[in-house]
Design a protein around this nucleic acid. Structure first.
Lengths: 105, 105
DNA sequence: TTAATTAATCAAAAAAAATTGATTTAAGGA
DNA sequence: TCCTTAAATCAATTTTTTTTGATTAATTAA
């Protein structure tokens, strides 16, 4: 039997949430994706596949990580999936100085 | 011979810098460390080793990652190493709403 | 000088994340 | 219906990160 060395369980939960968000941002390709989404408001996988020269499966993989961290939003129209910035979440997380790079004002 | 599909090399460099910082924050233990450093102003490895119930080598490993990302600073006095928040860097990166958790005002 | 303390580093193993190419799903048009 | 397109998912492999325990380095005190 091992003791769990956590004083504050809710704080631990908070850290886990932020860990997930920072992990999503901890990749150069995903930062590029974030940047492009920030610039273009709305982007589909095929657009990104062109501009970033990445295969579709890789993009879907990275987009899912950003989506699961609630940093971006997804809307499906027809066969297309459109991704956009989750401004509320991003602005909560990142400084205003990172505006234009990864967040809007 | 492969072409490098990067339009803006300086932008790519910027992304690499942020990738490193977000990678440093992408771990629950390191967020705990950041939190404790934020609270206490200054902390040595043995302090953290006690409060976080982690072996010394693991702590040194994680502290190095935060240090290399310039999120914390280190000062050696005698045989002790004291770590403190790099407020400038952290405030540049994180939102004001994360104040008290991982940054000062 | 020797012993004790603090912390960094190292190499090997384990765990987690990313890549790859293929397959599957779903929508739309011929 | 059949074919095409867009994108998600999957399994196997590769790469990266983390853990572990031991060793090393440096400082201080006896």
């Amino acid at each position: 039997m091992k003791e769990i060395p956590v004083q504050d369980l809710s704080l631990s939960k908070t850290f886990q949430t932020y860990q997930k968000k920072f992990k999503a941002l901890a990749d150069e390709r995903r930062l590029q994706i974030m940047h492009q989404i920030t610039q273009q408001k709305e982007v589909c996988v095929c657009d990104l596949s062109d501009t970033m020269a990445l295969p579709q499966s890789k993009l879907s993989y990275h987009l899912k990580i950003l989506l699961d961290a609630s940093l971006i939003k997804k809307e499906t129209r027809g066969t297309w999936s459109y991704y956009s910035l989750n401004e509320e979440e991003v602005n909560h997380l990142l400084s205003e100085e990172l505006c234009c790079l990864f967040r809007h004002d």
